[in-house]
Design a protein around this nucleic acid. Structure first.
Lengths: 252, 252
DNA sequence: GCAACAGCCTGACGCAACGTCAGGCGCAAC
DNA sequence: GTTGCGCCTGACGTTGCGTCAGGCTGTTGC
């Protein structure tokens, strides 16, 4: 089995020009040429190209890749182990950057701004466990809140529209059940409450039944929440509150 | 508060030359110059540089970074959301590559080789959930085995030496207990068995007491295992087997 | 049997994103 | 006041390809 440049290029997701380049610099040479001078790559060449692309993807300059791969002391397993290690390091670095961006989002939402050192630390020589400890210390107590902040900060406009639509839907069905005279602790409103709980979990923060029950109390106890529901339909705040607490009792 | 090029370079983990370059192409210009012509960066410039570095780190060419950041319609939160999304995509891509390398390691250990398409698929336009499903299907049944393969394949030579030393230590203490005439179901050999179980869990695969008990049976039933232990000391296979099963009974 | 068209070839030049001197000024300290 | 570090501005070099240009190859359709 052999491949032409074009075939290999498509297979490996690079351009023909790249393969020409690698041939020219001796990094990946086709092990044969046809009588017409066409490059003909065999399976060992694929192997080699694959290794090259992994190392290149890890940011190695091509000449270093060459010395790595041409080292007679390094067997293939050695390369795989090294690549595995480097990839996992990169994984950690990337999640550190994700965490840093989330940190900035939260800071921005809270109206505070980070110190220059804080902002750039992710680019320096990064100690992930150190940061993790710090993050834990800072936000560990109010995990649900922090989670919500992170998720909502990362939401796109379309996400928000979907959340809004789902919310409207659930509240509309609550209002309909109330208008139909269904008791708040009947099966239907309780199912709606469960749907509401899962909606919260999906979009904002982990919301176990117990916490949801507390929220239910708040829907009448906190005047802002009460006003929100009362503006939809009079009596809805108490209705939703009762349904949510009944559902929490059923679940717990 | 303001910074010189050198200070900013150290802070951000880039070279002075890079900042010169960004100034020249208008990407990050110091908002002031001293009377002597020194660049003087203020906090807004830091902000800007930070954004540039994130986008650059994500692989954007500098001119695209410029158009992104100079877009008057894009507020800072928009940038953070985009960066967050891109970083998570990269996170997924990287873990896909980690998985691919692990797959290769396993294939290599099993003596089979992957098809060219399999090897390069991680570089193409990658569908992570598709791969995850495939991996699940392939190795889901024998999770312990696959885990072991993955872990051992990723071990360095030093790791192997440590494993060997730990194994020798435990087996030596088993042999000593046997030589001292301690019954196999006494406390000491059972504690050794428990140590052995945790050794397996640490280095190879999850080994709950029940599974460990099965292994204990195998140490006498399977002649290869038996021969391994008998070569250390006659009677050791049966001794270890009994101790391990006694420990499993104690735990279970 | 040949025309057309996709695919291959080899230069050769271009380009982005800096690295690396070279030559010279600024400034704080000893 | 000079020493040494840090800053300045060119200017050229380098890596890793992209992008033509000009020409050959090989398969398919008529």
């Amino acid at each position: 089995m052999s491949w032409t440049v074009g075939e290999l290029a498509r297979l490996a997701g690079v351009t023909v020009r790249t393969l020409h380049h690698y041939d020219r610099i001796g990094l990946v040479r086709p092990s044969e040429r046809t009588s017409a001078g066409y490059r003909s790559y065999d399976v060992r060449d694929l192997d080699r190209l694959h290794q090259v692309l992994v190392y290149r993807g890890l940011g190695f300059p091509l000449d270093e890749v060459a010395t790595l791969l041409d080292d007679p002391d390094a067997d293939p397993a050695e390369h795989l182990r090294r690549q595995h290690r480097l990839l996992r390091e990169r994984l950690e670095a990337t999640s550190a950057m994700v965490a840093a961006v989330e940190k900035e989002m939260e800071a921005r939402q809270m109206g505070i701004s980070l110190t220059p050192e804080e902002r750039f630390e992710v680019f320096g020589d990064w100690l992930p466990e150190e940061y993790a400890a710090e993050a834990e210390e800072k936000w560990g107590d109010t995990e649900a809140w922090a989670q919500s902040q992170r998720r909502t900060a990362a939401m796109s406009k379309e996400d928000w529209l979907r959340v809004k639509a789902e919310t409207d839907d659930i509240e509309g069905r609550f209002a309909a059940a109330l208008a139909a005279g269904t008791p708040a602790d009947a099966a239907e409103p309780m199912d709606l409450a469960e749907e509401h709980r899962q909606h919260i979990g999906r979009w904002f923060y982990d919301c176990p039944p117990q916490l949801h029950g507390c929220l239910g109390e708040m829907y009448v106890a906190d005047e802002r929440f009460a006003a929100y529901y009362e503006r939809i339909t009079p009596g809805l705040a108490q209705y939703v509150s009762t349904a949510v607490q009944a559902n929490a009792a059923r679940q717990g």
